[in-house]
Simulated scan of single mutants.
Amino acid sequence: MSDNKQPGVWEGFKAFLMRGNVIDLAVAVVIGAAFTNIVNAVVKGIINPMVGAIGTKNLDNYSSCLEGSCTGTGADAGIRIMWGSVLGATLSFVITATVVYFLMVLPMAKFLARQAARQKAKEGTREVLEVSELEVLKQIRDELVAQRGQGRREY
Score class of each variant (00 low, 15 high):
Met1Phe: 13
Met1Ile: 12
Met1Gln: 10
Met1Asp: 10
Lys5Gln: 07
Gln6Val: 14
Pro7Ile: 09
Val9Met: 14
Trp10Asp: 00
Glu11Thr: 12
Glu11Val: 04
Gly12Lys: 12
Gly12Asp: 03
Phe13Gln: 03
Lys14Pro: 00
Lys14Thr: 08
Phe16Asp: 01
Met18Leu: 13
Met18Ala: 15
Met18Asn: 14
Asn21Lys: 15
Ala28Ile: 04
Val29Ile: 12
Ala33Cys: 11
Ala34Leu: 15
Asn37Arg: 15
Ile38Gln: 12
Ile38Tyr: 05
Ala41Gln: 12
Ala41Val: 11
Val42Thr: 01
Val43Ile: 14
Gly45Gln: 05
Asn48Pro: 02
Pro49His: 06
Pro49Ile: 03
Met50Gly: 14
Gly52Tyr: 06
Ile54Glu: 06
Gly55Asp: 09
Gly55Cys: 08
Gly55Trp: 10
Thr56Pro: 02
Thr56Glu: 13
Asp60His: 12
Asp60Ser: 14
Ser64Met: 13
Leu66Phe: 05
Gly68Met: 07
Thr71Val: 06
Gly72Trp: 04
Gly72Thr: 12
Ala77Lys: 11
Gly78Thr: 06
Gly78Gln: 01
Ile79Lys: 10
Ile79Leu: 06
Ile81Gln: 06
Trp83Cys: 03
Gly84Phe: 00
Ser85Leu: 08
Leu87Asn: 10
Gly88Ser: 07
Gly88Arg: 04
Ala89Lys: 15
Thr90Cys: 05
Phe93Glu: 03
Ala97Tyr: 09
Thr98Gln: 00
Thr98Val: 03
Thr98Ser: 09
Thr98Gly: 07
Val100Gly: 03
Tyr101Thr: 05
Tyr101Asp: 10
Leu103Arg: 05
Met104Glu: 06
Val105Pro: 00
Pro107Lys: 01
Pro107His: 02
Pro107Asn: 04
Met108Gln: 07
Met108His: 00
Ala109Met: 06
Lys110Val: 00
Phe111Arg: 05
Leu112Asp: 00
Gln115Trp: 00
Ala116Cys: 02
Gln119Gly: 02
Gln119Phe: 01
Ala121Phe: 00
Glu123Trp: 03
Glu123His: 10
Thr125Asp: 10
Thr125Cys: 08
Arg126Gly: 01
Val128Thr: 13
Val128Phe: 09
Leu129Cys: 08
Ser132His: 09
Glu133Pro: 03
Glu135Ser: 07
Val136Pro: 00
Gln139Phe: 02
Ala146Gln: 14
Arg148Asn: 13
Arg148Asp: 08
Gly149Leu: 14
Gly149Arg: 14
Gln150Gly: 09
Arg153Asn: 08
Glu154Arg: 15
Tyr155Asp: 15
